[in-house]
């Protein structure tokens, strides 16, 4: 009975929203510019964005933060030397590890590995998940049945256990191996979100209008479905990014992720665990970095979700 239900629109249900919606003045605004407007006023976003920018700069140009070499070991002088909390941004700020390497320098240089893994995995996962979800959602039928079952199978694999299985089959654990292992297992949640979002969008009249004009499937998918379906995917991807940072750390800690000589927070946490009793800072400092980064991305995801979710307006 859509014919009559829609006719109702003139007043009632949106009575509260109506005055807002009828604003036909002012400069052009789209969902994204609206969201940006909201974001700038969100303390959650401002804090997380500052943190993330700081971390990104650290990952791109660690030399700006420290002159020390994270791999330079001076056992004789610095074996498990305690942090000097007052020496901001100095080599000995966070103390030295069991091999006499500057923990501060290692934390700064470790950002690159951790963030690279997380960002690249997120990009790969978003692309793969969106493509799979969009095809399944748009075409439906057998394509959907097959793709959805494949998604379910991957979804059923416990993430860390699956990554362990994949990673142990590789001799050499370079950074790209970790990236591929995480991406291979991580795309399913994005695919599900994308599929659900596409299922709603494809019902929209403007998609039907494009079909009625004779638009090709590619055009419908890229110009009409994708831009309208992408918002929830971005939210999930941002939150997942934090998860990949901790996943990398977890795998490295378990000794099957990144390994020496790669500098990463996970590797440092792993090596720090042995001195937990006598020098806890060796473990705690990189752990705190992981927590802050994960938190920053989850906060960003939350802020973006709030800004994009029209229901909360």
């Amino acid at each position: 009975m859509p014919e009559t239900l829609k006719e109702a629109t003139p007043d009632t249900p949106g009575a509260v929203a109506a005055p807002v919606a009828t604003a036909a003045v002012g400069k052009p605004r789209s969902l994204w510019s609206d969201a940006w407007h909201d974001l700038r006023r969100s303390p959650l976003f401002v804090v997380s964005a500052i943190l993330i920018i700081f971390l990104l700069v650290m990952a791109i140009a660690p030399g700006l933060f420290t002159g020390a070499d994270p791999r330079y070991a001076d056992l004789a002088h610095h074996y498990l030397q305690k942090p000097k909390w007052g020496n901001f941004f100095q080599e000995d700020w966070f103390g030295y590890d069991i091999q006499g390497r500057s923990i501060y320098a290692r934390v700064v240089y470790g950002a690159r590995a951790s963030i690279t893994v997380a960002v690249v995995v997120t990009v790969l996962v978003t692309i793969l998940g969106t493509v799979v979800g969009m095809l399944a959602g748009y075409f439906g039928g057998w394509i959907d049945t097959i793709l959805s079952r494949v998604t379910d199978i991957f979804f059923g694999v416990p993430f860390i256990l699956g990554a362990m299985v994949v990673l142990t089959s590789f001799e050499e654990r370079k950074i790209w191996v970790v990236i591929l292992a995480l991406a291979f297992l991580g795309w399913t949640s994005i695919a599900r979100v994308a599929r659900g979002s596409v299922l709603t969008i494809k019902q929209a009249d403007y998609v039907m209008a494009a079909k009625a004009l004779g638009a090709s499937t590619t055009r419908i998918l890229l110009r009409h479905i994708l831009p309208n379906a992408i918002a929830p995917v971005i939210v999930v991807a941002t939150i997942a990014l934090g998860g990949y940072i901790s996943a990398e750390a977890t795998l490295s800690f378990l000794g099957i992720g990144l390994a020496e000589p790669t500098v990463s927070w996970g590797v440092d946490i792993s090596s720090g665990q042995e001195q937990l009793r006598n020098a806890a800072f060796v473990l705690i400092i990189p752990s705190v970095m992981v927590s802050i980064t994960v938190l920053a991305f989850i906060m960003l995801g939350d802020a973006v979700r709030n800004a994009l979710d029209p229901k909360l307006r």
Binding site: T9, P10, D11, A15, T22
Partner: peptide, 11 residues
């Protein structure tokens, strides 16, 4: 009509 305030008054 829509925006006349009739439903808002009722609410």
């Amino acid at each position: 009509e829509s925006g006349s305030g009739k439903s808002v008054t009722a609410q």
